[in-house]
Computed example of a mutant assay.
Amino acid sequence: MQGAMSNLERDPLELVCEEERKTRLAQSPVELLEPRDVPLGGPRAMNVRRTLPQRNRSLIGAWCFLDHYGPDRVSETGGMHVPPHPHTGLQTVSWLFTGEIEHRDSAGYHAMVRPGELNLMTAGSGICHSEISTPGTDILHGAQLWTALPEKARFIEPRFDHYAPEPVVTDTYELRVFMGSLAGSTSPVPLHSPLLGAELLLEAGAGAAFDADTSFEHGVLVDSGSVRFNGTLTTADQLAYLPPGHGSIELSAEPGERVRLLLLGGEPLGESIVMWWNFVGRDHDEIVEYRKNWQAEIGAEPRADGSAESSRFGKVVDNTLDYLPAPVLPNARIRPRR
């Protein structure tokens, strides 16, 4: 099975993601975004529920990609098996609810992704990595997210960070802040634009309210149960969006079922990005060059100009898998999707 850590669609969309800054003036400011099912890989593909990007919304702060998957029984699906693949201009945010994944990358890092622990890979100018679910994993369930690096940081050296947040526990909720700050809890991982990422467990019928930065836009992805987000009912697999200008986040679980959700936020990025396959850049020509570099490095295609191979992405440490070739680029120049 192919996994959710790489965008393995056979025909990935080219996207220019632009800020949507208008504040909604309707009675409820919350916008509900429905997921689309995306099969990754071949006949036994892992199906993910993708809520970012989509036509109605490209970004929430710098959050530019969100896949939500599982719970999948590995004995039936074959688990996650993502061979080495490249990234540029982004950070990958791996967050599991159940299971375990082994990560290896070309910056020399080897780590396990486990429930309740953040694995943050900063691609910067270029990195490649692989992810394989471990033999002891029975149920695989989690989310894969990307944040777009702003112009000032998108060519930094690649790196990897791990953080296991201490939960904030009350009578009604359990909160794990893995990026940014909330409710007195702050993550130490390096960020390159103001961001928030947290997992919240709410008891059935219980509520939680948090002070919010009014410069942030926020999103709530519901994993299980149903919750009212600033008054708007949001159900499992939906992503709810709240524009900037709101000083509080109010969450109330519906009776009868415990709620698990991811709370995301950030200042509007203020930049347009082009996202195609696993690359984030700023224009068509950058994406073409990234693809050429990758194909040359893995021996899939010679460089058209006959120059020496690039070493942008490097090689994954202790790798035994074939490197994943890039899809064919669209025939036309990548242009904004409107």
Results as ranks from 00 to 15, higher is better:
140 L>N: 14
328 V>G: 01
312 R>L: 13
282 R>P: 00
158 P>Y: 14
124 G>M: 06
29 P>S: 09
314 G>F: 11
252 S>P: 00
95 W>T: 03
271 E>M: 00
327 P>W: 01
204 A>G: 03
91 Q>T: 01
262 L>A: 02
247 G>T: 00
94 S>A: 05
230 N>L: 02
322 D>H: 01
294 W>M: 02
146 W>E: 09
112 M>T: 14
325 P>E: 13
84 P>K: 09
113 V>F: 08
79 G>Y: 09
218 H>W: 12
26 A>W: 04
90 L>I: 15
322 D>S: 00
244 P>R: 14
275 M>H: 13
218 H>G: 02
201 L>T: 07
300 A>L: 03
334 I>M: 15
66 L>T: 11
297 E>V: 07
217 E>S: 08
312 R>D: 10
92 T>S: 14
277 W>A: 07
159 R>L: 01
317 V>C: 09
150 P>S: 07
120 L>M: 02
76 E>H: 05
238 Q>F: 04
68 H>K: 04
308 A>L: 11
155 F>P: 01
33 L>A: 00
161 D>F: 12
65 F>D: 02
197 G>E: 11
319 N>D: 12
329 L>P: 04
321 L>D: 02
189 V>M: 08
171 D>M: 07
109 Y>W: 07
175 L>A: 00
253 A>Y: 14
325 P>A: 06
331 N>Y: 13
27 Q>G: 00
69 Y>D: 14
294 W>I: 04
302 P>D: 15
122 T>C: 00
219 G>P: 11
179 M>P: 03
269 L>K: 06
261 L>M: 04
122 T>D: 05
107 A>N: 09
159 R>H: 13
222 V>H: 07
116 G>W: 12
235 T>W: 01
199 E>C: 02
21 R>G: 02
243 P>D: 05
248 S>V: 02
242 L>P: 05
303 R>K: 12
303 R>P: 08
204 A>K: 06
134 T>V: 05
73 R>V: 01
144 Q>I: 06
172 T>S: 15
282 R>G: 10
